[in-house]
Design a binder for these strands. Structure first.
Length: 194
DNA sequence: GTTGCGATTGCCT
DNA sequence: GGCAATCGCAACT
């Protein structure tokens, strides 16, 4: 392994080894690619410590094992028996759910996988994002700092804050974050819910 | 062994 | 805005 890869890995491990609500906020504006397909992360949610909405709340199970593994590794789970959702693990038991991406590379492959050519809706939701990027449940637990994943650091942006979507427990925590002005969000930040 | 429920999406009215 | 689809997982008997 080269020095550059080691440096990247160490930097990312340090970046993600913090509270999920901090990481989720700072991750907006970064870029994520899977086999060269992806773009700018424009929406995230934090699943933190002592958070009843988190899969890790009741301790480690076979499904959430990756959440108790290494920081900067991915936690991928199946949602509603149909979709996959992508998280990046932070401090032990915490993770950031990636909810929306602004497509920048590999758009043709996203269009094929999603069966739509509406740019703003290729990755405008956790299930859509997972589908567009071609994620596989077998990737659960693998590191986000080596292929097929590639993370590129972003710069600070104006961030929108809101409550998380689709949860029933701990619904009032302001742990949803979005890139201000983005057209690629899963939904707006002013209205609560749909 | 059984049950109930989702960190969702897309189609229908 | 309403709701069906679809099934793995975890809680419970």
């Amino acid at each position: 392994m080269t020095l550059i890869q080691d440096t990247t890995r160490d930097e990312l491990a340090m970046f993600f080894s913090r509270e999920a609500e901090i990481v989720a906020q700072e991750l907006v504006g970064w870029e994520l690619y899977v086999k060269g397909v992806g773009g700018r992360i424009v929406e995230t949610e934090a699943y933190g410590h002592n958070d009843a909405a988190s899969h890790s709340f009741r301790g480690q199970t076979p499904r959430n094992k990756a959440m108790f593994g290494h920081a900067a590794h991915v936690y991928i789970y199946r949602s509603y028996g149909i979709h996959l959702c992508l998280n990046i693990v932070c401090r032990t038991g915490q993770a950031v759910l990636l909810r929306a991406i602004e497509p920048l590379q590999g758009i043709d492959r996203m269009v094929t996988r999603r069966n739509t050519d509406t740019r703003t809706q290729l990755c405008s939701g956790p299930g859509k994002l997972a589908s567009a990027l071609g994620l596989d449940h077998a990737m659960d637990g693998s590191s986000a700092y080596q292929p097929p994943f590639e993370l590129r650091k972003g710069i600070a942006h104006d961030i929108l804050v809101g409550t998380r979507i689709g949860i029933t427990k701990n619904p009032d925590a302001p742990w949803r974050f979005g890139l201000k002005g983005s057209r690629y969000l899963s939904r707006g930040f002013s209205d609560r819910n749909k």
